[in-house]
């Protein structure tokens, strides 16, 4: 089980727990504002853009070229930007905080 904190654009903090799926799926299930996940997680829509807390960013597997290329064209991109459909939930990310980008 991993604890995950989403912080929306409006500053609302949402704490959730899960053991499988992706950060996008969990957010959509709980209607986290700003994470739409339109394409269901195949890296085609960039509607699940988050900024990962720096201390956790390095722990994640590096983004693929396809994900990086998607992010290149999105708004509010920082060095900690990720599409959260590409972040699987596991014990390894327990305690992670992500800020919704858009």
């Amino acid at each position: 089980m991993a604890k995950i904190t989403y912080i929306t654009k409006a500053g609302e903090e949402i704490q959730l727990e899960a053991s499988s799926g992706s950060l996008m799926e969990l957010a959509v299930k709980h209607k986290v504002a700003g994470i739409d996940g339109d394409c269901g997680g195949v890296c085609s829509c960039a509607t699940c853009h988050v900024h990962v807390a720096p201390e956790f960013y390095q722990k994640l597997e590096a983004p693929t070229e396809i994900e990086s290329d998607m992010l290149e064209f999105d708004d509010n991109v920082t060095e900690y930007s990720r599409l959260c459909c590409q972040i699987p939930i596991s014990e390894a990310i327990d305690g992670i905080t992500v800020n919704v980008a858009n």
Partner: peptide, 12 residues
Amino acid sequence: RKMNPHVAFGFG
């Protein structure tokens, strides 16, 4: 297909 960054609905 897991990674499918298609543009069938356009882009941007």
